[in-house]
Write a protein that binds this DNA or RNA. Sequence first.
DNA 1: TATGAATGAGAATTCATTCAT
DNA 2: AATGAATGAATTCTCATTCAT
Lengths: 196, 196, 196, 196
Amino acid sequence: MEASVTPKTARGEATRRAILSAAEDVIGMRGFNDASITDITREAGCAQGTFYIYFKSKDEVFAELVVEMGRLLRHALSEATEAAPDRLSAEKEGLRGFLTFVIAHPNLYRIIQEALFVNPDAYRAYFQTFADGYREALAAADAGGEIRPGDPDVRAWMLMGIAKTLGERAVVWGDETPIDDVVEAAHDMIVNGLKR
Amino acid sequence: MEASVTPKTARGEATRRAILSAAEDVIGMRGFNDASITDITREAGCAQGTFYIYFKSKDEVFAELVVEMGRLLRHALSEATEAAPDRLSAEKEGLRGFLTFVIAHPNLYRIIQEALFVNPDAYRAYFQTFADGYREALAAADAGGEIRPGDPDVRAWMLMGIAKTLGERAVVWGDETPIDDVVEAAHDMIVNGLKR
Amino acid sequence: MEASVTPKTARGEATRRAILSAAEDVIGMRGFNDASITDITREAGCAQGTFYIYFKSKDEVFAELVVEMGRLLRHALSEATEAAPDRLSAEKEGLRGFLTFVIAHPNLYRIIQEALFVNPDAYRAYFQTFADGYREALAAADAGGEIRPGDPDVRAWMLMGIAKTLGERAVVWGDETPIDDVVEAAHDMIVNGLKR
Amino acid sequence: MEASVTPKTARGEATRRAILSAAEDVIGMRGFNDASITDITREAGCAQGTFYIYFKSKDEVFAELVVEMGRLLRHALSEATEAAPDRLSAEKEGLRGFLTFVIAHPNLYRIIQEALFVNPDAYRAYFQTFADGYREALAAADAGGEIRPGDPDVRAWMLMGIAKTLGERAVVWGDETPIDDVVEAAHDMIVNGLKR
DNA sequence: TATGAATGAGAATTCATTCAT
DNA sequence: AATGAATGAATTCTCATTCAT
């Protein structure tokens, strides 16, 4: 009734990690509903019951996956943009970092998208965090005279939409245009759209 | 396995339509997996078995819904843009038309998004059609010197991403900024991003 | 609630016959359970509801089929054996007649066999009739000194078993040995087994 | 679609056996179509879902039943005939063994017969095995001058037909003539039919 | 006489979750 | 910590049968 334990040994730690990683693979590929606990534990190399030692439910792993992906992505993005001298180049490097990350973790896109149906709250939390950060950055750039004045919230969503869709183009459509070319082409429109 | 009949009477026609419409509502609200056939037929006011007279399976209604939504949206968009004198204003009116449509059919966004998991082929067909149309329009505008030169395919996906995400902001996030304000703000970035 | 009508017009008569014949084909091929009323009426070229004008239920057609096949087979057998001068040649011609009939009506074998599961009473009635006739004929031949003395009931079942199985060998196994060769080979054993 | 596991513990082993045995009883009595999984698991004393741990489908248990019955029967027959000095007495003891077995396992007859409709391949495999063995034995006896020359395949089917039908007479018709009397009466005809 | 739409009980199957070992 | 057997509710789909037209 109240499982979900924090591992106390290295072995337990490893098992938990194996299950989480298997869940990412299996749910990412088959989708939440078609991914059974059996599929996940088979992939993780343990018995069905073991799953419930570390996770309360199927929904719980999913939620944890969403949170973890958010963490990983935020990390990737801040690394990608930390050296950027201004907002517009941060925009460029952020897009490059995002596409690189998404292509390296193709299951990300699917899991995040599916969260809208499986766990709307997690979905909202995930995007809200990005939207907020984006909006603040744009508002600051606006205030600092770096970019044309304009509604920072609408712009934040537009830029997220651009990134998301270009990521999907690569991951779902299998488009193989080199990342740098896509970034170049996209940034041309973005920079002109935003610069003073 | 072999049902799915074309209604031969007005009564049958009406029943089929009632089921399709109920499916749109119920699947749109609860999501594909949580929408049971019982839910759908209860909403449609008929018995469970009746569903299978007109649809081979739950997947089949879903696919039909995706196709129908594509049809409706294409119609709405061509109406919205037909009077536009040039590409950039077509862009503006298209965005306005899209947001108007999506807000009027909030289930659209969910059903289309969920198609990625439920019926990837239908999802691909749906977006491919829009992407192709978009790309051609942008390529023509480029060739005609209406806009800055640039990769029409990347731009097509960017513009679709912008529209999709702004639609989601309204439908999923319940943002109530008036459409015209959103369009104005978004179009500022788009027009500057694309104009010569 | 109480359908099953005797046709009053030539048209009705024809429809009823079409359904019965379609039922023979469809049930014979797919088996009783996999043969749906829809299959039968589609084959008969009428609407589902029409079935219930002439037959009370699916079981009823089946029963009628069994009875009719018994009638046809009895007719075929008595024609085949009427010219036989004695029991042993009646045995031979009866076997030939049986195999000929079964090969011409391959659905017979299946329907009769399936009757054991679908309608055991009809199955019993069918075989009882043949068993009784056979037993009487053998008892008479025994009494008349035509054959070796012996239990006529056991012999009746043995001879029915021989015929049934050779019929199955042709119909189910698709064995194509000419009927006359089979009859010759079988009769050698039968005649020696029974003659004084 | 992907279950069907080999038990890994004694408990699992016992459960699997209980289900298989319940399936034999229930299917044998009610027939394949009228025997529901619920009936089977109720009889086996476990939950519905447990069935699918050990068997992929209702068809799968049925097939396994057919195979197992073949194994049991072959075993019973070879035990019954192993001491027989020649073909004709093997014939006699084989028939006695068969009737004894069938009366002890009355569900055998029904399940095997129903296989023609439920799983024709299993049915064919079952009879083919017996027919082949029979034919070889008769051919050898013929070659060794033990019996009258004659087509061994036709004879094999005749003898199978005799046994099958006499078995049916006991099991389906409830005939209670003592086995030995039936064997005596039948063997009289068989031995005269086959001896030189 | 014929149609075909509608019904709803019933069946097989799946799967997240629990629990004894 | 791990196992894997067991559960049973839930779901999709089928089909004989009824009924209004």
